[in-house]
Amino acid sequence: MSWNTLLFMIFPYVATVVAVVVTVYRSIYRPFTVSSLSSQLLERKKLYWGSVSFHYGVVIILLMHLLALLFPKGLQLWNAVPIRLYLLEFSGLALGIWSLVGLVVLVWRRISDARVRTVTTSMDVIVLLLLLVSMISGVLTATTYRFGSTWFTAVFSPYLWSLIVLQPQPELVAPLPWIIQLHALNYFILLFVFPFSRLVHIITLPLGYLIRPWQVVIWVREARARAD
C-alpha cells in the first residue's frame, strides 16, 4: 500500500467515521463536555483581536471551500472573467491572512497569559498547532500556486467527490506539490481530532435562537404525565 492510498484514501474515511460516531456519542451521552470553553472572563483584550478575526475569517473561507466543492462549474464561469478571478483570489487571500493573524494572536495569548495558560489542555495545544499548519499551508498555497480557485475545481472537487460517492481516486492528489498535499491531509487530521477536542462546539451553532420564543418554561408535571 502506498502512502498515497493510506493518507488520501483510507485515512479520510477513518477520520470521517470517527468524527461522526464520536461526535454523536459525545452529544448524546456526554453533553456536559460539549462547550466552546470560552476564556473571555480570564482575558479579554487579546481575545477580542484574536477570536473575532480568526472565527469570521475561517467561517467565510470554509464556506468558500464548500462552494467550490458544490458548484465547481459556477466557480469556473465566475472566474472566466479575469477581474472577477482577481477579486475572488484577492479576497480569499486577504481573509486567509486576516484569520491567520487572528490565530497567531490566539496562540500568543495562550502562551503569554498566565490565567489562560491554566485552562489550556494538551488537546488545546494540538488543535492550535493543527490550525496553524492548516492556515499557513493554505496561505502559502494561495501565494505560491496561484489561482487556486480555478485549479481547485479541476483537482480537488473531483477528488473529494470521489470520496463522497465511495469511489475514491487518491491518485488525483498524488501529483500535487507537497504543501498542497499537506494542506489537504491536515484537514483530515483536524477532522479526526474534531470530536475529541473543543472543536465540537462548531456543531452547536445555535441557529434555533432566531425563532424560539423568548421565555422557556419546563414543567415537571408534563414529564410526569408522559410517564403515566
Partner: peptide, 24 residues
C-alpha cells in the same frame, strides 16, 4: 442555546449545564 429555563411548578430559574455551550 436554550439552556436556561424556568421551572413551571415553582418558578425556579435553572441552567441546564448539559445544554450550556459557554456563550455567556
Amino acid at each position: 442555546s436554550e439552556a436556561i429555563y424556568k421551572r413551571g411548578e415553582d418558578g425556579v430559574v435553572l441552567v441546564n449545564e448539559n445544554k450550556c455551550r459557554a456563550w455567556r
